[in-house]
Amino acid sequence: MSYPPPTQYGSAALDVGINFAPSAHWDDEWYRSSHLGLVPGLKGRSDTRQVACVSQPDPYTAIFHGSVLFADLSMVWFSVQYPFSGTSDPNDTSTVRREARYLPRPSPMDRAALVEAHEMYGETIASFAESFVETGEYCARGECWDLAAKAIESLEQYDYVPPPIPSTVRTHGHLIYEGKAMGKGTQVGRWRGGDDRVRRGDIIEWRSVRIVITNGRAWSMKSMGNPDHTAVIVADTMPSIQVSDGQFLKPADLGTLEVVDQSVSTGIKPKRDKCELSGLEEGEMWIYRPVSMQAYIGCDLQAQCPEGINALRV
């Protein structure tokens, strides 16, 4: 699968954290800018959500703190303590102290946890998307991604539910399924987590997809993704075979997905659609279950690692 981006050390968080090891060489005092875009290992990356702050524990010392959530849902915290004024050698560990801690990619949830997440968020997310079909107006900018991301953001108004994982690039929570097609009749895929079905309020990502449906001599073709396209699933779908975490499952085994999507760039206002996955001949797909960030990752995104988090040290 082409997403999330490949890693060198098993998670995006460790790929960045390794740059804070004592043996890692830094070319300059990048930390004085307090700019996350200059953090070693983060330059040029767009698959993140980030937060940072600078503290000054005494008149002579400053500490740059930062944290990053990646599209693979790993998370890293890092800090650099350095002299507040003047210049210093960024590789002199006696004057510039660096540290990084990280959480690897989270393990899949069991059925009870995933069903609970659906019951907590699913109906609100699906109803949010359907409301734009009823009004005929675009959600936010009208981009396909907005429909899912804004649905998740809408949950912030309810203080009685824990905040879900925010949409991070093309990731919208716990991965439920990933699959792809490499030509007619050639499909592969994998189920993830302990639930037994796709549920209303799940979110699907398509990448460069072509679905061809034939009915006798008649046929129709549907293309989605330039290269990416997002939709909100609005009906439960039970796979045709019993599933378990890690099990091989072709997209066709999911049957037909009912979704709501939009695309201002192609002039498509919010609409209902059905996607018959038996006809998937090209492209990739991912299905996500919005879940609590606290329940799945262990904490919210904040610049300093919270107490009690069992983060690994680099």
Rank of each mutant, 00 (worst) to 15 (best):
P5S: 11
Y9T: 03
S11N: 13
A12S: 15
L14A: 10
L14C: 11
V16S: 03
F20K: 00
A24Q: 09
H25P: 07
H25V: 14
W26Y: 04
D28P: 02
E29T: 13
R32M: 11
S34Y: 12
G37C: 08
L38T: 14
G44V: 09
T48Q: 05
R49L: 15
V51F: 03
C53K: 11
Q56K: 15
P57Y: 04
P57D: 06
A62I: 03
I63S: 04
V68P: 00
S74W: 03
M75S: 01
W77S: 01
F78E: 01
S79I: 04
V80Q: 00
Q81G: 06
P83Y: 00
F84I: 04
F84T: 06
F84G: 07
G86E: 07
G86R: 04
S88D: 06
D89W: 09
D92S: 10
S94P: 07
S94T: 12
E99T: 10
E99L: 14
Y102P: 00
Y102T: 00
P108S: 14
M109K: 01
A113Y: 05
L114R: 02
G122S: 11
G122R: 06
E123A: 14
T124S: 14
I125Q: 06
A126Q: 10
F128Q: 04
F128S: 02
V133F: 06
E134A: 15
T135M: 01
G136R: 04
E137N: 08
A140V: 11
R141M: 12
R141A: 12
E143F: 15
W145N: 03
A149S: 14
K150W: 08
A151M: 05
I152C: 02
I152H: 00
E153F: 02
Q157N: 04
D159I: 10
Y160S: 01
V161G: 06
T168S: 04
T168Y: 02
H174P: 01
I176T: 07
G179P: 04
G185I: 10
G185A: 10
G193C: 08
G194V: 08
D195G: 10
R197L: 12
R199G: 05
R199C: 02
D202Y: 15
E205K: 14
W206L: 13
R207V: 02
R207T: 10
S208R: 10
I213W: 11
T214L: 09
N226S: 13
D228T: 15
V232T: 05
T237H: 11
P239K: 03
V243C: 09
F248I: 13
K250C: 08
E258F: 10
V264Y: 13
S265A: 15
T266K: 07
K269T: 07
D273L: 05
C275L: 13
G279R: 11
V291K: 01
A295H: 09
Y296T: 07
C299K: 01
D300Q: 04
Q302A: 11
C305T: 05
I309Y: 07
A311M: 02
